[in-house]
Design a protein around this nucleic acid. Structure first.
Lengths: 229, 229
DNA sequence: ATAATAGTGTCTCTTAGACAATATTTC
DNA sequence: GAAATATTGTCTAAGAGACACTATTAT
C-alpha cells in the first residue's frame, strides 16, 4: 500500500536469467563473463535493468533475445523468484526478479549484443566454482525448480527440438536428474500419460538402431500421474 | 548487470501478502479496506514498502506482524511471485513481491497497526467481487499455489494448530480443494506417508465422538507418495 | 440404546518397476 | 550375422479408492 514513496531511497530493479539446456549429455547454463567491477572476470547470469515501460516478463524476454538470440517463442520462460538482500550488489540497493528459461540445444551463437563473453557451462561444476553476486543461489533455485517441474509437468519437452524421440526425452530426464531410467518403462509411461507427447507421422534413425517414432509436445500442463524421481 | 542505474527513473518496491487460513469451514484470506485513493473503500491485500535495510522476506514478516499480530514463527511464509506491470498502480511505477502466508485459525484480532479495517473473507466470493489493483490476480496465484502444494508437501498442517487430529487435517484438504475425501482412506494415507504427521501421547474429543489421537507436523518437506487431488 | 466420530480390514483396479522377448535399422 | 536402439509384453508388488466393520465417546 504505497503511501509515501518519497520517504525511501530508490531501489534499482533488474531481471536476471537462468537459461538452462541439455548439451553434450550435460545439464548446462548460460553464463556471461563480467567485464567490470565488482566481480570483474567472474562468471555471472545474464540480466539487466527493468526499463520504465516494460513488464517483468517482457524485460526477461528482451534480455534473452539480446543475450542468446533466442526468441521467447523458442524457449519456455517462467518467473523463478526475486532476490533483494540489501547488500547483494555492493554498488547500490537492487532487487532482481529472476526468470527461468528452458531451451533446446540449438546451434546457439551465445554471442550477446554486449561485448561480454558468453558461454554454456555445466551446472554442477559452475555451482562448485562459484558465481558473481548471489547468482549461485539463484542458479541453485532455478536448477531445483527445473528438476521438480520435470516430475509433474511436460516441461522436459522444452529441452528438446520441436520433434523428438522418446529416447531423447528420456535422456533429458537422465541428465537433469542425474539418474538412470529404464528405457522400456519410460517409453510406456511417456506415451501413455495423457497429453504428454503426441505422435507424428515421421521417424528418425539419428540415434542409431531401429528407426524411432518422432513425437511433438502434447497439450497437457500437468502430468497425471506424475513421473516421480 | 547494473551499469548505469541513474539512466532510469526510480521504481518503488513493495511487499504484498496473501494470508490464507481455514476458518468456519471456509478458505479465507486476510483483506484490508483501503482508506484512500485510488480504490478508496475497495478491499486489497495487506502490504507496504520495502525499507532500505530490509531483506524481502524480512519485510514480509514485518508486514505480517503489523497487520495480523501473527509472528513469522506461527505461520508458514514463502515467496509467491513478483508483479510489475507498468500501470499496476496509477500513482507511480511499482514492483511488488508477493508472499504467501498460511496460518491456523487462531483467535486473531486482525486489527493492524494502521487504522485500516482488516477482515477475513472467503476466497471465492472475494475473487468474484474484485480487489484493488492487480490483487485479484495475486490472490488467484496464491490460492493456486496453496492448492498445488497440499498435494506434494505436508503444508496442510500449517493451517492447523500445533496439535491436530487427522480429521482436522482432512477438513483442511476438503475446504482448500473444495472436494470431499473418504475419511477412512485419508486416515490411512496421512498416517502412513513417511514424515507427514507424527503421533503425540494425547487425544481429544473436541470434534465429538470417539476420542481422536493428536498429531504434530512431521519432518518431511515432500510427500512420498503425493496426495493427489 | 443411539448418534457421532475414530480407526482397521478387505477387495479390486491401476500403476511402478524389473526384465524377457521381439522388431528394425546400420555395419 | 552382430550390434544398437525401439517397442511391446509379462510378472509382481505397492498404492488408490470403495466400503464393511469395529471402537469409544456423549447424551
Amino acid at each position: 500500500m504505497p503511501t509515501a514513496a518519497n520517504d525511501y531511497p530508490p531501489i534499482a530493479v533488474t531481471v536476471d536469467l537462468v537459461v538452462l539446456t541439455v548439451r553434450e549429455e550435460k545439464f548446462q547454463v548460460l553464463t556471461i563473463r563480467r567485464g567490470e567491477e565488482p566481480f570483474l572476470g567472474h562468471w555471472a547470469l545474464p540480466g539487466g535493468f527493468l526499463r520504465p515501460d516494460e513488464d517483468l516478463e517482457e524485460a526477461a524476454g528482451r534480455e534473452l533475445q539480446e543475450e542468446t538470440a533466442l526468441s521467447a517463442q523458442q524457449v519456455h520462460l517462467e518467473q523463478l523468484a526475486s532476490y533483494g538482500t540489501p547488500d547483494r550488489d555492493p554498488r547500490m540497493r537492487t532487487v532482481t526478479v529472476a526468470y527461468l528459461a528452458l531451451a533446446a540445444d540449438l546451434p546457439t551463437p551465445t554471442a550477446g549484443s554486449d561485448a561480454a563473453e558468453a558461454r554454456w557451462q555445466p551446472v554442477e561444476s559452475l555451482l562448485a566454482s562459484g558465481l558473481a553476486f548471489d547468482h549461485g543461489r539463484i542458479l541453485r533455485d532455478g536448477v531445483e525448480r527445473a528438476r521438480a517441474k520435470l516430475e509433474y509437468t511436460p516441461l522436459a519437452a522444452a529441452f528438446c527440438p520441436p520433434e523428438f524421440t522418446i529416447s531423447e526425452l528420456r535422456r533429458v530426464y537422465e541428465v537433469v536428474w542425474g539418474t538412470e531410467l529404464d528405457a522400456r518403462n519410460f517409453h510406456r509411461k511417456a506415451t501413455k500419460t495423457e497429453g504428454f507427447v503426441e505422435p507424428t507421422p515421421g521417424t528418425t534413425t539419428r540415434d542409431g538402431g531401429r528407426p524411432a517414432r518422432l513425437y511433438r509436445a502434447g497439450h497437457a500442463t500437468t502430468l497425471h500421474p506424475p513421473l516421480l524421481r
